[in-house]
């Protein structure tokens, strides 16, 4: 395994983390809502994919969009029913509430799907490696990089260039003024939340192969999501993206070069970054 392969795997891992966490970057970063249950939507997408592919025999690439839709639907329903009541509440309330949701999702999944790890049956042509300039590149990871890269560009464009993006930014910056301008803030938030949950679901479906999928997924990856958002800063979408790449590469490299230290590498990195820039690598100096 060469340094380049590690870099490649790390980038794939990081991109995956970004797709998983980007929804949280929006709800937490822009809407200032602490959603610790974000991983539960990723898990929902992952399990949706498992059911569709393994049990119903759908092709993998048909299941991916459906995983997105499933997670987005769950997100939309929960947002309308529960989350929206908590936007104005204290962080403690949001933490307690979302931890409650995590616990419920974990045990409910355990009950419905069993506690063992599950795998998506991915098509055989994705399993092999291809040779790029003498470098062995896993096709599955390459596919992840392509899909996630496209998503990132799309996300950036949607937030920066479209009418919906400007509405969202307006609604976040000043909900009252935005309402006054005729923007339906509640609807914008609901759509954003659903879209973010859908992205998490897609990430969960894509990542089941690499990250492993079991009922404890939301708990295991909670810290990763939080790191991505807090290290990346909450003012842009580029910040979390760079943070995800950094985290992915550092994690893969750390586990390869110093397996004994394991997860310490990323925690150490996180601590250093935090001491250096408390508001995240790409955060504005003044917090909201």
């Amino acid at each position: 395994m060469t340094a380049l392969t590690i870099l490649f795997d790390g980038v794939a891992y990081g991109m995956l983390l970004f797709v998983l966490a980007s929804g949280l970057a929006v709800t937490l970063g822009l809407m200032n809502f602490v959603n610790l249950a974000h991983g539960a939507f990723a898990m929902a997408g992952g399990y949706a994919c498992v059911i569709l592919v393994n049990r119903l025999g759908l092709p993998f690439f048909a299941a991916l969009p459906l995983a997105f839709v499933a997670a987005a639907l769950i997100g939309a329903v929960l947002e309308r029913l529960l989350y929206r009541h908590l936007y104005g509440r204290s962080h403690l309330d949001q933490v307690l509430f979302t931890i409650g949701l995590v616990f419920m999702s974990v045990t409910a999944t355990d009950y419905l799907m069993g506690s063992q790890q599950v795998f998506v049956q991915i098509p055989d042509y994705l399993r092999s490696q291809i040779d790029v300039f003498g470098l062995g590149v896993g096709r599955y990871r390459l596919m992840i990089i392509v899909i996630c890269g496209l998503l990132t560009v799309a996300l950036q464009l949607i937030l920066g260039r479209t009418r919906f993006g400007s509405r969202l930014r307006a609604a976040v910056d000043d909900p009252r003024a935005a309402t006054g301008l005729g923007i339906n803030v509640g609807q914008v938030f609901a759509l954003t939340f659903a879209f973010g949950s859908g992205l998490a679901g897609l990430g969960g479906a894509l990542g089941a192969e690499i990250l492993g999928l079991d009922p404890y997924f939301p708990l295991k990856f909670m810290i990763y999501f939080l790191i991505v958002v807090s290290v990346g800063g909450t003012s842009t979408i580029t910040g979390p993206f760079m943070a995800s790449l950094l985290l992915g590469v550092a994690d893969v490299a750390g586990k390869y070069y110093v397996p004994k230290l394991g997860a310490f590498v990323i925690y150490a990195l996180m601590i250093v970054i935090l001491i250096w820039r408390p508001n995240g690598l790409f955060g504005r100096t003044a917090t909201r």
């Binding site: 937490l28 602490v34 610790l36 962080h91 933490v95 909670m222 810290i223 939080l226 790191i227 958002v229 807090s230 909450t234 004994k260 394991g262 997860a263 310490f264 925690y267 996180m270 601590i271 935090l274 001491i275 408390p278 508001n279 995240g280 917090t287």
Partner: peptide, 27 residues
């Protein structure tokens, strides 16, 4: 570490400290 940054970083740091210690105890 906990005193640095906002509520969000606080959540992450406190969670991370417990995780690191658990990892250490396991290692």
């Amino acid at each position: 570490l906990v005193m640095r940054g906002s509520d969000l970083t606080r959540l992450m740091v406190t969670l991370a400290i417990a995780l690191v210690l658990r990892e250490l105890a396991n290692r």
